[in-house]
């Protein structure tokens, strides 16, 4: 009975929200969002500081923010402070999971599934391929969709594959910790150098080069790779914590 009542209330609420959004004149209907009246128009034609005219892929050089993928431009350049905050969230949650579950000496969780030899060997091969795609996505963040976060997630998924396929396998946690801390510190240091030299925290010091090249958009790709590594190591740390338990 309680569930039914809750269902009714939730339904009525949903209906009310939909109706109120419909006849709310300020809220644009689905699909008719006029981007020009919004802040993001400046991001699209890179005209926050000065107007570079129309941007031709492959020719426009040192625009105010380099990456071809505008979403990466916003995430890593215009609003890169959010991403810093973002990374801290993930850092804290992985630290927290380690605090909650991690003990001194951990050993692999006793699962009743014991993989046979074929699975253990086959997964090694697949591991390499997944890892490479993850790294590729991280590196090409500023050109193609994806970037640090999806890349990092794929790296972690490759680690997960190993964990699942082989029940004695344990990655070297120490290494992840080192990588994570290195990437984080590097990211903040880049920001600080931006503050010291360029006057603004996280400023893009290197020139942006030609839009569309692999080595363009200044510090963005570097930052995104660092983020990819950090996310990868953190999530693998979390996976390790979940799949292990207290024991000699």
């Amino acid at each position: 009975m309680k569930n039914f009542l809750a269902f009714i209330t939730v339904l009525v609420l949903g209906y009310m929200i939909v109706v109120s959004l419909d006849n709310n004149e300020a809220f644009p209907a689905y699909g008719e969002a006029d981007v020009s009246s919004r802040v993001s128009q400046a991001f699209i034609d890179r005209s926050v500081t000065e107007d570079p005219g129309d941007i031709i892929f492959g020719q426009a050089t040192n625009l105010e923010s380099g990456p071809a993928n505008i979403v990466t431009a916003i995430v890593a350049d215009y609003r890169s402070f959010d991403t810093l905050g973002e990374v801290t969230v993930l850092f804290v949650s992985s630290l927290g999971v380690a605090l909650l579950l991690g003990g001194k000496k951990q050993k692999r969780l006793e699962l009743n599934f014991h993989p046979n030899f074929m699975l253990r060997v086959g997964s090694r091969a697949l591991f390499g391929i997944i890892l490479m795609t993850g790294v590729y996505i991280a590196i090409h963040g500023h050109l193609t969709p994806g970037g640090g976060f999806p890349g990092g997630a794929m790296i972690a998924s490759s680690m997960l594959l190993l964990y699942l396929a082989d029940d004695e396998f344990r990655a070297k946690i120490k290494g992840f910790k080192m990588l994570e801390s290195f990437a984080g510190t590097a990211y903040v240091l880049i920001g600080l150098t931006g503050l010291l030299l360029g006057g603004y925290f996280l400023e893009n010091l290197l020139d942006n080069g030609v839009i569309g090249d692999l080595f363009s958009a200044g510090i963005i790709p570097i930052v995104y790779v660092l983020i990819g590594l950090k996310v990868g190591s953190e999530i693998s740390g979390i996976i390790d914590n979940f799949l292990t338990e207290e024991g000699v």
């Binding site: 209330t9 009525v12 609420l13 009310m16 929200i17 109706v19």
Partner: peptide, 13 residues
């Protein structure tokens, strides 16, 4: 929370 939002949006119906 649901009750409060409902109370606010009641006028919209």
């Amino acid at each position: 929370i649901i009750v409060l939002i409902g109370f606010l949006l009641w006028g919209e119906l």
